[in-house]
Design a protein around this nucleic acid. Structure first.
Lengths: 228, 228
DNA sequence: TGACGATGACTGACTAGTCAGTCATAAATG
DNA sequence: CATTTATGACTGACTAGTCAGTCATCGTCA
């Protein structure tokens, strides 16, 4: 009468019951480890779906399917769709911030420092899943104040502060002319943000060489690099 | 039973005479005119709702209510929700482009030209409903290729071309040093775009003086303005 | 060590609710 | 009165969230 046959079919059909052979899955460590793995799978899957479809249009069924988990399982890890989305942003962003905060030793010219930063950003954000996350936050931010707040606090305000510090250093060292720039570090990062958005929206129409663009922008700020 | 109180304040100044005074409402011109009004009301309402909630989360019932029409009426003007959204973007953007394309006579320095442009942009886009539209397009673009295409064709590519022209002029006239800038007009507009997004997302955390920021940015490109 | 009951992670059918789109009916118009 | 336009109750498809039941794993004890 009941249709519980699914799991049975799978298990019983496999005559031999070596865990490894039967379970197409993992070395099946202990429960806790498996749970963590599953949670990670859900986060990963949810990420993809939310980026591809936005919050409202994403179905939890799809996330579950992609993560290889039953829908109910999601609710063992997250309270509901909304808080799942909010946690998601935290989960994905925190390690990135952590990595970037571990800044390289301040050696060399300010331009070199910023260039290193830009190179990182290029490699790690522009054109990657993380870049899409940024677009997603721009998209959903107004409907998720908690997300916008978090993003401002953890990423934007820190980033702005760091850039301001760099700019002031550059001014002090005479590398940067324009003193007012320190008041608007946004100007420094604007082209990078534009590059992120451009890749998501217009890359197919007109590919953008983000690296070259950022170089030109830095030339604008520091003066043309002399190949002397 | 019905609450027809909605379309009151509109155009009651029309030559109303014959209809009984009972209709405190519109003397209403002819059918075609009313239809256009309604269509406009729907577009306006849809705009608000889509901006506030995004495409997927917007309910047609809400649009209808806000526009003061029945839901069925929407379907007299638009095929379905999706094409409504796409048409909407066109309807709202076309006049803006038209207005901006009617550029002022190229008098004065390039910097003055661009400053006039920026001033316009500031007044007409940043911090207005139209700014939100830009954010909406960024948000929904990936899910609406038609919208992204249209926006690229009508706004982005034209804007980029126009900016490139201005930059080249500035280089020719010796106002702009950095020749490579002509290859990336995006750099010129990046801070303006950032300002649009900033106002939507972070204004409540840290208000941004967009005008001043744009001035600083232009100083960066043209050199500090001499108070001549 | 091996057997066995307790545990709780996991499942997916199900409920309750939502909303795009339809259409029979009503109002307005000419 | 015939025709065009508007209405909003209704339908059917879809989905967030639930929960009774299952079973792999774990702790315990002979």
């Amino acid at each position: 009468m009941t249709k519980k046959s699914t799991r049975l079919a799978k298990t019983s059909a496999e005559g031999g019951d070596h865990p490894s052979a039967t379970r197409a899955e993992m070395p099946a460590s202990n429960r806790a480890a498996r749970a963590l793995e599953r949670r990670a799978a859900i986060v990963e899957a949810a990420m993809e779906e939310f980026i591809a479809r936005g919050f409202a249009a994403t179905r939890l069924d799809d996330i579950a399917k992609r993560a290889g988990v039953a829908k109910g399982t999601i609710y063992l890890h997250f309270k509901d769709k909304e808080s799942m989305f909010e946690e998601l942003v935290r989960i994905v962003i925190v390690p990135v911030v952590a990595r970037l905060t571990a800044l390289p030793p301040p050696t060399g010219s300010v331009r070199d420092l910023i260039e290193a930063f830009a190179g990182n950003f290029l490699k790690e954000v522009i054109g990657t899943r993380r870049g899409d996350l940024v677009r997603l936050i721009v998209a959903e931010g107004p409907r998720f104040p908690a997300v916008a707040d978090f993003y401002y606090r953890e990423v934007v305000s820190r980033g702005i502060a760091a850039m301001r510090g760099l700019i002031e250093l550059g001014i002090a060292r005479g590398e940067i002319r324009q003193k007012d720039l320190a008041r608007y570090p946004q100007i420094l990062v604007a082209p990078a943000m534009i590059a992120v958005i451009w890749q998501s929206l217009f890359a197919r129409h007109a590919p953008l060489d983000a690296q070259d663009m950022l170089r030109v922008h830095l030339d604008l700020i520091f003066g043309e690099r002399r190949t002397t």
